[in-house]
Write a protein that binds this DNA or RNA. Structure first.
Lengths: 154, 154
DNA sequence: AGAAACTTTATAGTAGCTTTAAGGTCAAGC
DNA sequence: GCTTGACCTTAAAGCTACTATAAAGTTTCT
């Protein structure tokens, strides 16, 4: 049977660092597991499935708070799932908004880039001048769209 | 003349918190300014312009490292600006990649959402089941697109 | 003179981990 | 029996780009 795992087994199987598993436990997303005599964590099928659920949610870029919310709903199987829908709809809304912001940003960046097609000295560089004089993003600016994700440049 | 500012003046004019200005100084993006007798920071036109440059870059969602790089290039006016172009092109690439990832993510989320159009109990909810069994984002997954930006939900 | 409004530094908190340190456990090999 | 190495343990610091708080000093207004 393969339904008893130590933390490293679980980590390898689900391709997640062991520290992250401990972190999820610390954050209350995973329950405190049983321990061996030597104080090693022991996980079963239920925990493996719960962690899979969490990882899928993270792959969909939900926050730990959103995931906590879904896990609570999952833990009460009798409830209606209208609330599940609303968590997901809210998240879809976040993503849509983010895409909109990034598209705006991309337009601005390409506009800026077009100011220096012919290389000159940086003193006269249209890009550097553009960055120094560009209208301030007082309102309607890019407003921190979050381009630089951890795994984005792999 | 309005070319001598204390930190609060500068902050108000450029709509940035004073702490952020000190932080940029701490991070070496702004030089250590002159001080009054009472040890207050004093800024002139050059610093104001430099801060404006930084804020525009941030509005375009560049990292402080990218900005540091551009500032260095800006500080050596005789250099060619091919490198400016390449910093900007790299950043445009980051944004494009992020948009692509988020579009993928949006597709997955909508697919998931479609599993529960008719509300049932959460035990049978297609969404929760989907999240538990969805193919793991082993490769080609959403890979942390960063949806939840600081100012995104304002 | 005294209060309000500004400034100073230092420190901690945010999200979601990753990294490091300093050590304990366990199976295999000599 | 003892060591080596792979695994595990906890706690704490580091990452980005700030934001918030505390405790104190300075300047300005009345």
């Amino acid at each position: 049977m393969t339904n008893r795992y130590r933390i490293g087994d679980l980590a390898t199987r689900l391709a997640v660092p062991t520290q992250t598993i401990r972190y999820y436990e610390h954050e209350g997303l995973l329950p405190k597991p049983a321990r061996t005599e030597g104080n090693y964590r022991v996980y079963g099928i239920a925990e493996r499935e719960r962690l899979t659920f969490i990882l899928h949610c993270r792959a969909l870029d939900m926050t730990l708070d959103e995931i906590r919310h879904l896990l609570r709903l999952r833990d009460v199987p009798g409830q209606g799932c209208a609330e599940v829908n609303s968590v997901l709809d809210a998240h879809i809304g976040h993503v849509a908004e983010r895409i909109r912001l990034l598209n705006d940003l991309q337009l601005q960046l390409k506009d800026l880039r077009a100011r220096c097609e012919s290389p000159s000295t940086s003193k006269d560089c249209g890009i550097l001048q553009g960055l120094a004089s560009f209208p301030t993003a007082q309102d309607g600016g890019a407003s921190r769209a979050g381009v630089h994700g951890r795994r984005a440049q792999e």
